[in-house]
Computed example of a mutant assay.
Amino acid sequence: MKKKILEASKFIVENGLVKGTWGNISIRYEDKIYITPSGIPYDILTEDMVSVVDLKGNHIEGLNPSSELPTHLEIYRTREDVNAIVHTHPIFSTTVSLVADHIPPLIEDSVMILGSKILVAEYALAGTEDLAINVVKALGNNNAVLLKNHGLITVGVDIKEALTASLVCEKTAEIYLYALNIGKFSTLSEEDAIMLRNKYLNSYRQIEKDVR
């Protein structure tokens, strides 16, 4: 799991989803949560630095966990299907969080992996229980939620799905901003969006064998 955290950290940097030390990643495996430590640049992160906590947030090993641990814990408590969480600060998703309260169902891959409508969580200070509550409320059963004036959180049954969701959400946010600039755009019907989402969950999705 620690190796996967390092690989995922490299992925979000290489894909321009974060700058500096911001953002965080976690994986739930059995009765532990592996999460990026607080304030450590991704390019010097090593396996022994990765923080390990129990499901109640008690520190077991590694450096101190990310300050966003409360949000990760709250998501894991409320979503049994989630085993990985990726929090990033990408440009387009963050921009949407400033100007809209949701992204409507625009394109097929987005509604399949993310959900039909991507909501923006109400603002709260980073690392607080208020933020955790707001995030879980706006996330619902989706795989992505925008954080107002902050960034993006995506989740998945495994880390691969959570990372893919980050890329898809950022692409969708970029498309949405272009469409808003043009001033007129079409959306998928609610019926089609639900059908596509169910197709992804029930037949299209591929799951790693060791997620739990």
Rank of each mutant, 00 (worst) to 15 (best):
K2Y: 03
K2H: 06
K4A: 11
L6C: 07
S9Q: 02
F11I: 07
F11H: 12
I12H: 04
I12P: 01
I12Q: 04
E14R: 09
E14T: 00
L17N: 01
G20I: 02
T21F: 03
W22A: 08
S26A: 06
R28C: 00
Y29W: 10
E30D: 11
D31Q: 09
I33V: 15
I33R: 14
Y34W: 11
T36G: 03
P37R: 12
G39Y: 11
Y42L: 02
I44E: 12
L45G: 06
V50A: 08
V52T: 13
V52G: 09
D54N: 15
L55V: 10
H59A: 01
I60S: 06
E61V: 06
N64F: 07
N64C: 02
E68L: 03
H72Q: 07
I75L: 03
E80W: 02
H87Q: 10
T88N: 04
H89F: 10
P90E: 04
P90K: 05
I91R: 04
F92K: 11
F92R: 08
S93T: 02
S93P: 03
T95H: 01
A100M: 09
D101E: 15
H102K: 15
H102R: 15
I103Y: 11
I107K: 10
S110C: 07
V111F: 08
I113R: 15
G115C: 05
G115L: 02
S116K: 15
I118V: 15
E122N: 15
T128I: 00
D130T: 01
A132V: 02
A132E: 07
I133T: 12
I133H: 14
I133A: 14
N134G: 08
N134M: 04
K137V: 01
A144T: 01
V145Y: 14
G151I: 00
G151H: 06
L152H: 05
I153V: 14
T154M: 09
V157N: 12
D158C: 05
I159R: 08
I159E: 03
I159S: 01
A162V: 06
L163E: 12
A165W: 05
L167T: 01
C169D: 02
E170R: 03
K171V: 00
T172D: 09
T172I: 01
A173W: 03
I175W: 10
A179I: 00
I182C: 12
G183Y: 11
K184W: 06
S186N: 13
L188A: 13
I194R: 11
M195W: 02
L196F: 11
K199D: 08
K199P: 01
Y204T: 11
Y204R: 04
Y204P: 00
D210Q: 13
R212Y: 14
R212M: 06
R212I: 00
